[in-house]
Simulated scan of single mutants.
Amino acid sequence: MKFIAIDGLDGSGKDTQINLLAEAYKKQGKNVVVRSHPCNDNRYGRKSKEALLKTGKINHLKATIYFGLDAIRSVRKYSHDDSIDVLIFSRYVLAVMYLPDVVNMIVYKIVCFVLPTSDCMFFLDVSPEESLRRIGSRHEDTEMFENMGSLIKVRNKSKKFTYNWNVVDGDKSVEEISSQIISKCLDSD
């Protein structure tokens, strides 16, 4: 099974890119499963999303912990299914950026040791300004991290976590980003 992860700030285009990538693999006749976290098909994902729509430190912690449980659940449920050719995750381990600085790198290294990784893990590095523009056009409830201050802080933090990711300029057009991701993934098959 080919494992692919696409991560990035809110508004970076993760879901758009996983859907385009999934279509490219489906055209090749591959059985593709896409998991976009937090997922609404299980209690961990729903609790994470619920906490993201609130404010405060306790909800910040709840959102991160439930997100982690949601992603782990997806890995356990889908990564050993022999009928799946390609497993694509939107948001994966970089949620650890939202943990306090004291523990986030430790948790990240543990998570990367325990959970699957591959050479097809992409971080869409979108500017906070572009991220906010895209978030505003979605017409959805705003989450706790979807403000300029949080986006700047998290983007700056991301630099210490993305050393083993393919970093893609998230401000580019959908087509340019898709071309870069698809060619990297298909070349590594």
Rank of each mutant, 00 (worst) to 15 (best):
F161D: 01
D10K: 00
K157P: 12
A51L: 02
T142S: 11
D101E: 15
D81W: 06
G170M: 00
A71R: 13
S127W: 03
I84F: 06
S12M: 07
G170Y: 00
P128V: 00
N166A: 01
A5I: 09
H37Q: 10
V154E: 13
A24Y: 04
L9F: 07
I18V: 15
K26P: 12
V34W: 11
C120V: 05
V114H: 08
R138P: 13
I135S: 08
D187I: 02
W165H: 03
V154I: 15
S150K: 14
S158Y: 01
D171E: 04
F3C: 02
R73M: 06
N166I: 04
M148E: 13
D141E: 15
L52S: 01
Y66D: 01
S74T: 12
E146F: 00
R43M: 12
Q17K: 08
N31G: 02
G45T: 08
L9T: 07
V102G: 05
S83E: 12
L186R: 09
S183G: 04
Y25A: 05
S173I: 10
L132K: 04
F3P: 06
L20W: 06
G170N: 04
S118L: 11
Y98P: 00
A22E: 08
E129L: 06
A63H: 02
E140N: 12
S131C: 04
D171W: 01
K159P: 06
F89Q: 02
R91Q: 09
G149T: 15
D15L: 04
R43I: 15
H37K: 01
S83M: 07
S48T: 05
I177T: 07
L53A: 09
S118K: 11
P116V: 07
L151D: 01
V167T: 13
S12I: 05
V174Q: 12
D187Q: 12
E50K: 05
Q180E: 15
Y92I: 04
I84V: 14
E146D: 04
K57V: 13
T64E: 00
C112A: 08
L99G: 00
D7Q: 08
S178P: 11
T117K: 14
K14T: 15
I135R: 10
K109I: 07
G8A: 03
K27E: 14
K27I: 14
M1D: 05
G149S: 14
K159V: 12
S48E: 01
I4L: 05
A63C: 03
D81K: 09
M148G: 00
L186S: 10
I135N: 07
